[in-house]
Design a protein around this nucleic acid. Structure first.
Lengths: 318, 318
DNA sequence: CCCCTAATACTCAAATTGAGCATTAGTCCC
DNA sequence: GGGACTAATGCTCAATTTGAGTATTAGGGG
């Protein structure tokens, strides 16, 4: 052909699984350059993106995916950064990356070893509001946020994003919050991208960045994924693609709470869940609770139908 | 490089504007081969997809876009079909198309001439349930649907998708319905794609296809867009990107109804809308109503804030 | 058998929906 | 100028759906 630069399609996957404690992510890369599992799309070999994603995640990590859904296609010049193991790309190529979310139900021990898993709140400490300890992350960055919010427009954005001044916290606005922190220079990626575009930069301002960074724009992709999952849990029964086959209602609630980063009102959670018809009790009981034994439930047949709705999230008081 | 086929990124845009009657689409192509505005992405010239979309829609149709949002990236081999005006692609290339939704507020007359606009229900007659006339479209295809639904699994899918047997109609499941009709062979694209993959096909079965077809997989992209818009209207105030600057509540309701294809309860619509704080009354009145003059409203400042919520849709009874 | 811990059951009030009925302010027509 | 007509607005009421607690209950461990 001609000198037209090639377009390379990269695929990145946010692979989420529920461990006992909460949502965990499958990561790849080496210490200091951690990122999402990433592969490039082969226009000949792969018939669909989804098959390609399943393929490279399995071959890179040995982990087989369950539910898979396309997230977003990132094509901005400037925020992507070439990733080492991406294959034979050159500077002249344009990399477009299609992000996917994949859910894997509770990790089987054998599979667990097949990759590096990490609690996703390592990268977004301010997103975990289940405990006062988690809330502290937000307090810690407030001074810097306030310093940045010099105009009323910015102040109002901060208030909306972080649920300040009477605004309510919206658990699914993960991307808004991340982008705001990026603009405010509170996440390390912001400094890195600026340095890159300015040539070799002035020394990084001495500042405590919030959360651990990821390679390229992977933390942004991850924020998009978290937001999408948290929103989707309300209108599609995807939570069951993450939960084990049989679970107690408390286990399910813990999982939802971990995913959404908020505490729910226990009795009301049960009530809406039972009323929704999404779960049905197996006869069996689960005894290792420390208190009264709990009934084990499974997802119902109706929860599998296309168009089944999701969970309501009855927030608990402060 | 080598003989690797190029990847071509196509961009297609579902451009929606509200005319007096309802949502209209910007189309391009010649009679018999109508499709969405479509352009290819230039890896050198375009910094972001969004800019590229704005660019080619404007240059193809002279129409300037307002709100723009990425929809989905379609990359399946087999359902895309080369589009004539796509540029210098060859058979060996792999076309990946990124779909966008764009909203343009009520059409200015001068701009209107700049492209071909059509009521989107031409392509999805069954999606308009505002009148009994619209409902007839569904009745007409029921025999064929029933003929296809040979298994209980299929029957249940039909019932869920089309709100039969006590199931409720979900206005945003446009894609589910379209895909089901595609599988059932009721839309012309299904026949066309089968013919293509089987080589020169048997003569098309004599059957009345439902809705007008579009080039390539553009009707599928459109279904995705409609579903997304209908869903999004509930949790983001995007309706105001479609409505004129000043409107009466009835006009706004008509617009929402046209978009969602359902009738709403008028008094309750007003109530939730006023309570939501998304609109505020300008002092002015609008007299040409035929009845009592109506107050003119505008979107409020809070409706512009990131994170503002959308409308509730109080359905009217049968 | 008593204590401790969760799970499960119930209760009650506040807020949100679903459905109508009632009023009102213009236009059109004698 | 008065009455008919047509939407826009206002209000009411009951049925649900939330939000928040208080009360029971069934195991495990001394």
């Amino acid at each position: 052909m001609n000198a037209t630069p090639r377009v390379i399609i990269g695929l990145s996957a946010v692979v989420v699984a529920a461990s006992g404690k909460g949502p965990e992510l499958l990561l790849s890369g080496s210490p200091g350059a951690i990122g999402l599992p990433f592969g490039s799309f082969d226009p000949i070999g792969h018939r669909t993106f989804e098959l390609a994603v399943r393929d490279f995640v399995t071959s890179q990590t040995g982990f087989a995916l369950g539910y898979v859904e396309q997230l977003y296609t990132f094509g901005d010049k400037g925020r992507e950064a070439p990733v080492a193991d991406m294959g034979q790309s050159s500077d002249a190529d344009r990399v477009v990356s299609v992000g996917y979310i994949a859910l894997a139900s509770s990790i089987v021990e054998g599979q667990r070893r097949a990759g590096v898993w990490a609690d996703w709140y390592r990268f977004f400490p301010w997103e975990d509001r289940r405990s006062t300890a988690g809330m502290r992350a937000l307090d810690l960055m407030m001074p810097d946020l306030n310093a940045w919010a010099t105009t009323t427009e910015r102040q109002s954005r901060v208030a909306m994003a972080f649920g300040l001044h009477g605004q309510s916290w919206q658990e699914s606005q993960v991307l808004d919050r991340f982008e705001l922190l990026y603009e405010a220079g509170l996440v390390q990626e912001a400094q890195r991208d600026r340095a890159k575009s300015k040539g070799s930069a002035a020394p990084a301002p001495e500042r405590a960045y919030v959360g651990e960074p990821l390679v390229s724009d992977h933390r942004r992709i991850l924020a998009t994924a978290m937001g999408r999952l948290r929103a989707k849990i309300r209108y599609r029964p995807i939570i069951f693609d993450l939960a084990p086959v049989r679970f107690t209602l408390s286990e399910l609630q813990d999982l939802v709470e971990a995913l959404c980063g908020v505490k729910l009102h226990k009795q009301n959670f049960r009530r809406t869940l039972e009323r929704s018809g999404l779960v049905e009790s197996t006869g069996a009981m689960h005894g290792e609770t420390g208190g009264r034994p709990a009934m084990l439930f499974t997802r119902s047949a109706t929860s599998r139908q296309a168009g089944a709705s999701g969970l309501s999230l009855p927030l608990a008081k402060r």
